[in-house]
Design a protein around this nucleic acid. Sequence first.
DNA 1: TTGTGTGAACAACTTCACAGCT
DNA 2: AGCTGTGAAGTTGTTCACACAA
Lengths: 233, 233
Amino acid sequence: MAQSRTGPRGTDRGIPEATVARLPVYLRALVGMSEGAAGTVSSDALAVASGVNSAKVRKDLSHLGSYGTRGVGYDVQYLIYQISRELGLTQDWAVAIVGLGNLGHALANYGGFVDRGFRIAALVDTDRARVGEKVAGVVVSHLDDLDRLVAERAISIGVIATPAHAAQDVCDRLVVAGVTSVLNFAPVVLSVPDGVDLRKVDLSIELQILSFHEQRKSVVTDLGDRAAAGAPR
Amino acid sequence: MAQSRTGPRGTDRGIPEATVARLPVYLRALVGMSEGAAGTVSSDALAVASGVNSAKVRKDLSHLGSYGTRGVGYDVQYLIYQISRELGLTQDWAVAIVGLGNLGHALANYGGFVDRGFRIAALVDTDRARVGEKVAGVVVSHLDDLDRLVAERAISIGVIATPAHAAQDVCDRLVVAGVTSVLNFAPVVLSVPDGVDLRKVDLSIELQILSFHEQRKSVVTDLGDRAAAGAPR
DNA sequence: TTGTGTGAACAACTTCACAGCT
DNA sequence: AGCTGTGAAGTTGTTCACACAA
């Protein structure tokens, strides 16, 4: 996971990482509700819509401030605004996607991208044959132009969708160019200097975690379990 | 997130979730090393290659058993075997991918898939025009045939790469068909019955988390007084 | 010496349960 | 009466530091 944020000095006025990771889920649920006719939500209703329990919702939201009303709940629109602001979604973020294989294409065409505050400002590849081509309405540039692109288009977030062997080099170039947040899809451990945030999404790891639990299911759970723990197979 | 471990509450012979999530990372690093000429690794070397600290490596590996040698380290091949076994990768898992848009295609063509123990046993879509077409060497089937496919091909893992609005229905069908592990890429909260494991990968959430930290960087790090004085409004 | 394995301290996160506001 | 906000208790995960084996 990314390094822990915590400001350089002084008391940590920060929101817990676990909470930050759930705010986007709440936000999505709230936006869904706001399209209906819901003026307010209770922590309970929001919890159900978000797949967590209500105590967690209340604790999480309490980190943003006291935005609820006792006996009533939270104002949907106001909460949407507060969460958006906290997540930095009231401004636009320029994103560069590097690597335009299958995954890069999928990401470029991913709707939820532009959805909230994220704008694909550059598509980058090393394949000269692809440069100039348009994907999702954006012209593909060459990796060698990265410095210029990042500077000119104020890109602060880089998405790596290259093969594993190219990922660290691409990451280094992104950082040198001035990108300060990196989302890595390549199945490799990357390192970045302090001050740069790094997150990863790894399909293979997710599958292996499922495999672990799946295996546990078929193994008959210990001896003498009543009624033959009917493992459906 | 996925529900906590299924199965009866006995003595917890289990490995902590946090450890399970790191085992695939260690495994990848080890496989990389085994291609070189490394007979053994220290927890320190493995830690560096995995992007964690060595205490964590030792604690994690200790959950598998005492497979290291004091003063020496861990035998690479043996560790690979033990981790693979623990993760259930010594057997093959049949996977179905549902939804063959950009993302589904990307997943189907993703190399690391077949990599370790995972086999694409079915590709499924609702678009009749796509049915019959071959993607990544596998013929696309229709969603209506899911029950048969899951049964005939002993599929236990389902990957959802559909639009959000279709995801819960697809998930329900997968579960009814007999799938017991689901990996969801659709940006929506799914619910599954007990006994079914659910994990999600959500690009939009990852970006929003980066956005949160990115925003914090630009904010001058010392406006911590604001909320400190009583009633925030 | 070197580097594992682990009890113990520490830190983060979750859940409980209820006081207090509306 | 209903629902938030939050101390306190409980749980899980991380790091320390050192005994001990090779």
